[in-house]
Design a protein around this nucleic acid. Sequence first.
DNA 1: TATTGTTATACTCTATAACTATA
DNA 2: TATAGTTATAGAGTATAACAATA
Lengths: 155, 155
Amino acid sequence: MDALAQLTFAVQGALGRIAAAHDVSMVQTRLLGILRDRHPTMKELAGLLELDKSSVSGLVDRAQDRGLVQRTASALDGRRVQVSITPAGRQLIEQARAAFEDEIEVLVGDLSPAQRTRLCGIASLIAVADAKRRCIDILDVEPAPDGGSAVALPF
Amino acid sequence: MDALAQLTFAVQGALGRIAAAHDVSMVQTRLLGILRDRHPTMKELAGLLELDKSSVSGLVDRAQDRGLVQRTASALDGRRVQVSITPAGRQLIEQARAAFEDEIEVLVGDLSPAQRTRLCGIASLIAVADAKRRCIDILDVEPAPDGGSAVALPF
DNA sequence: TATTGTTATACTCTATAACTATA
DNA sequence: TATAGTTATAGAGTATAACAATA
């Protein structure tokens, strides 16, 4: 257990340092990562980030003030607001992803190729299983029938 | 990379939920975890938590207000303050640790015993290597000659 | 009435800068 | 002077509760 916890602190630390180097917070980075290939509503964002809707309002406010994301009124439902990433936001998140890849490369530098493969497989297993549990428990949503990941990538 | 990042979010999510269930934040939990077997000064705490000393002042203030930790003036150096855990703090962190173990058990539930062993070994490898790098890079401190972990356990 | 989102408010967490006390 | 710690201040992040607009 301690090993696993320490691993996550090491990775999260790397992640946090990179985000900070790009002058954004972890949660802002996650927000941009989610918006890379989605245009969710505020409510959907709250579900993906596991935050209260009011927290997401402030989060999007600050990102919008910095020109990283934009709000669009939904044509279908006047109550809904669609959030999307701006070119500036996309540029920022792609740079952060690249830096993060480099940092992870350092982190797993001592591992043999076989160990890396195993770690990847095991990590995927845990993450997918957890995501499925979470979808059912929290969002009350069926997992995708193809078993595909309906999960918010952190990046 | 995504698998690893998702793994850490899954673990950190579990950790955060358990901390919240015990009505403490993640960083308060880390603080108590560090104090389980240490009586560091404020400066040492700042190093272990990778926070500014002023942040630690507030952190310890709030924990102290809740009766979880206590400050003691150092007899050797009038400038220094030693921080230690109270019985109430110890009880809280032990309960949180137990809950966290249960949650991790769920998280790794789909893994075979062999996979668990491998994950533990790989996670330790990464965490230890990262801690050593961090000691050298950040604290400018030599790693312990016995190769032992001088690292702050997250719990 | 129910749902979506925002606003008001309060708290934790964090850093920078200025300050106090000790060495 | 240098070090250890606190305080003042400011801002991000978060949740709860009240509110407005739409369905």
